[in-house]
């Protein structure tokens, strides 16, 4: 057995997904009143099309990847959290944390923390500019949304 190429293992993943999707499509309940086309038809057709396309993908020759698309050279140096993939993972975690802390902390505090924190983490060392820029953008948006547009944003622990 030869090693699967990129397209082939992508095809396997997509095929698995389409099978899963079809499984859910079959659970869409039928509507009690007669309908020429019920809610389940489209999902079923989509599932089959995706399965068929993933078979086609399996046999498609992968395009030659541009060398620059592979960030391999950078992965060797430094701890994981400073590597390219580490940056993606940490940024994702920061976004998730932001989502969960937005309401308890309030909009202004959470957004400023995220902005200042990420900028720092990405390697910007001029702290005063960082803080000033983040605060002004966040406060500007906050005032625009709450005062001008009358949209409610969570205030959290700060009094505004």
């Amino acid at each position: 057995m030869t090693r699967l190429n990129t397209n082939q293992w992508l095809a396997v993943v997509l095929l698995a997904f389409s099978v899963l999707y079809l499984g859910f499509a079959w659970q869409v309940p039928a509507f009690p009143l007669p309908r020429p086309v019920d809610s389940d038809l489209f999902p079923k057709v989509l599932g089959f099309i995706l399965a068929f396309l993933s078979v086609l993908l399996f046999f498609e020759k992968p395009a030659i990847q541009e060398a620059s698309d592979e960030p391999e050279d950078a992965t060797q140096q430094g701890p994981f959290w400073l590597s390219p993939w580490g940056r993606v993972v940490i940024t994702s975690l920061a976004i998730a944390a932001y989502a969960l802390l937005l309401v308890p902390l309030g909009f202004v505090l959470a957004s400023t923390l995220l902005s200042v924190g990420l900028t720092l983490y990405y390697g910007y060392r001029r702290h005063s500019i960082n803080l000033a820029a983040s605060l002004s953008v966040v406060l500007g948006l906050y005032l625009l949304m709450t005062k001008v547009m009358d949209v409610y944003l969570p205030t959290g622990v700060l009094p505004f």
């Binding site: 309401v103 308890p104 409610y152 969570p154 205030t155 959290g156 622990v157």
Partner: peptide, 9 residues
């Protein structure tokens, strides 16, 4: 979500 702000209030 606004429940917290009410708690604070």
């Amino acid at each position: 979500m606004p429940s917290l702000s009410i708690k604070r209030l």
